[in-house]
Design a protein around this nucleic acid. Structure first.
Length: 542
RNA sequence: GCGCCCGUAGCUCAAUUGGAUAGAGCAUCAGCCUUCUAAGCUGAGGGUUAGUGGUUCGAGUCCACUCGGGCGUACCA
């Protein structure tokens, strides 16, 4: 619908040249009384034309060469909006497009040939994924799906670190539990990993090796086994949500490949680093940041900034057109340093989009659950998944703007899973599947022969929602905002349920029934496509 | 103190990126099944968009300040 008006306005530029100077856009009015699309162009031209907006609006309408079989009415309203009403026949045409493309309807080739990388989850293997990681995992995977739908070839990547203090503590924790299993009296520090999984791993080692590991270094077999076991667990948790990373990138390889050393050298050559108090500092203050920061500690060990910069450089070198980093707000202070560092060594940081999601407050009943992997005070993602199912988990984490501090009440999620909005969507899909099964007995078929019979207000309302799918999807993808797709699909399901109530198929005259069937089928396709992007199933029956 | 994010109906959240009368779900109340799944539909009540000022044809959205909450502010990641 918008395309039609864009070209009409383009033509009108010959008569009103000032139209070139303003951004032409069309909004979908909230109220149907205001038409299908509206333009604010007249209001934007008041200054340059020095006339009142209503007079300008009339001029614009007069200079538009509108086809009456497409636009039934263009009228001036309010302070100077031009409202366009499309003919019912035109709106029905979307059905043909949907039935033609089916599973591919909504896909775009705008970014065909472009490559993107989405890095998400990236939790170090110190324990199982918790509900706290759920938002990151689900949103990341969905963003990747969205990008694929608009043409990108996407690599999903997981960055982790099996060195450093966290992992040392992990190895120590396992070793102590192992010694415990041997019957030794150990003092297990409070700030070590308290989780049951540590004991399990220790027990396995005990069963396999007996007491032979008593003198092994905690950082050898203890740490390595824990890392492997935990990673198997993490991957399984992700798979349970339909998430599969293509690349698992270990920070270690940056050292093995000499990237870290090379980067240090580059900083030094560019005179961007210096030594002080036995540490190496990067001149962030000269790179637009507030102060210089340490990149190599006086122990000789780099801080996270150095490998982070090196890692991003590696990703950039792979030739992606778009790089997405997704992490929680606890990391929001780290990325400006990384970007500044990258820029300083000549990378185009405009290709990197950093997506920060706010924390999820987990509630159980009326109480806030504070999660900590160390203290083993958490609810795992698997536990949640087992409780409410993948569809609910994925929809729930996707449905909110990542900027919002969402509250997840476990008690509500468990108790009211029937009332979760995802069922509203799936139910619409199941209802349509059900009709398609039923009509076979009645010798009715999906037909596009008499679409012009679809003039009921609920039919037209549904058609207009279908018209918006492509644009909404695009919006959602380009802005990296999965929740917009959820909102759209919810509205679509609502329009369908309404139509389902007022426009029956069985018992209706054949031509109209078959046209309605085509509309229902088109709706089913769009719901299914939308749900597949969210990673939610579209059941045939419920 | 400083930086980022947030504050919208009793609760959980939307709002086409500055548009017209701020919308949904839950909860409350009142209706709709001999008819394709009632996990649905219809209606009612519920708001000074935290507050104050500013920008303009027009502000929940942009700017400034105030109040309140989250996360950071390391030679932890």
């Amino acid at each position: 619908m918008k395309e039609y008006l864009y070209s009409a306005f383009k033509e009108a530029e010959n008569k009103i040249p000032q139209l070139k100077e303003i951004p032409i856009s069309f909004d979908i009015p909230k109220s149907i009384e205001h038409g299908d699309l509206s333009s604010n162009a007249a209001m934007l031209l008041t200054k340059s034309l020095k006339k009142n907006p209503k007079a300008i609006a009339q001029e614009i309408i007069d200079s538009l060469n509108l086809d009456h079989s497409v636009i039934s009415k263009a009228e001036i309203a309010g302070p100077g909006f031009i409202n366009f009403f499309f003919t019912p026949t035109y709106t029905t045409q979307i059905i043909k497009k949907i039935l033609d493309k089916k599973d591919n309807f909504g896909k775009s080739e705008k970014y065909k040939g472009k490559k993107a990388n989405v890095e998400f989850v990236s939790a170090n293997p110190t324990g199982p994924l918790t509900v706290g990681h759920g938002r990151n995992a689900v949103v990341g995977d969905t963003v990747a799906n969205l990008l694929e739908w608009i043409g990108y070839e996407v690599d999903r990547e997981y960055y982790f670190n099996n060195a450093g203090r966290q992992m040392r503590v992990l190895g120590d924790s396992v070793k102590l539990r192992y010694l415990e299993a041997l019957g030794e009296d150990v003092n297990f520090p409070e700030d070590y990993y308290q989780g049951e999984y540590i004991k399990q791993i220790a027990k396995q080692l005990y069963l396999k090796y007996g007491n032979k590991l008593r003198n092994e270094d905690p950082e050898s077999i203890f740490k390595d086994t824990a890392e492997q076991e935990i990673f198997v667990d993490i991957k399984k948790s992700l798979q349970n949500l339909g998430i599969n990373h293509k690349i698992f990138f270990n920070e270690n390889t940056l050292y093995e490949d000499g990237k870290i050393e090379k980067l240090l050298l580059v900083f030094k050559e560019k005179n961007l680093s210096y030594e002080k108090d036995g540490a190496v500092w990067l001149k962030f203050s000269e790179l637009g940041q507030t102060e210089d920061k340490v990149i190599v500690k006086n122990t000789g060990e780099p801080t996270y900034r150095l490998p982070d910069i090196a890692y991003h450089a590696v990703k950039m070198d792979r030739g992606y057109d778009l790089l997405i980093d997704l992490f929680g707000s606890d990391h929001n202070a780290t990325y400006p340093d990384v970007m500044a560092g990258l820029k300083a060594i000549g990378y185009d940081t405009s290709k990197v989009k950093v997506l920060i999601h706010q924390f999820v407050t987990i509630m159980d009943g009326g109480e806030v659950v504070k999660m900590s992997t160390r203290k083993a005070n958490y609810i795992t993602l698997d536990e949640l998944n087992d409780e409410v199912g993948k569809d609910v988990v994925r929809y729930f984490f996707n449905m909110r703007n990542v900027n919002s501090h969402m509250i997840f009440d476990l008690a509500v999620a468990k108790k009211q899973s029937d009332e979760n909005p995802v069922f509203y969507l799936q139910y619409a899909h199941a209802r349509i599947s059900s009709i398609l099964r039923r009509v076979k007995e009645e010798h009715l078929e999906v037909s596009i022969e008499h679409l012009n019979l679809l003039i009921h207000e609920d039919e037209q309302a549904l058609l207009k929602v279908l018209h918006n799918f492509k644009e909404e999807l695009f919006n959602s993808a380009e802005n990296l905002e999965p929740h917009k797709l959820c909102t759209y699909l919810y509205d679509l399901a609502g329009a369908y349920h309404k139509f389902n109530r007022s426009c029956r198929i069985l018992g209706t005259e054949k031509n109209l029934a078959e046209a309605r069937l085509a509309l229902a089928y088109a709706t089913m396709i769009v719901i299914k496509n939308g749900l597949s992007i969210l990673g939610v199933s579209a059941p045939e029956q419920m």
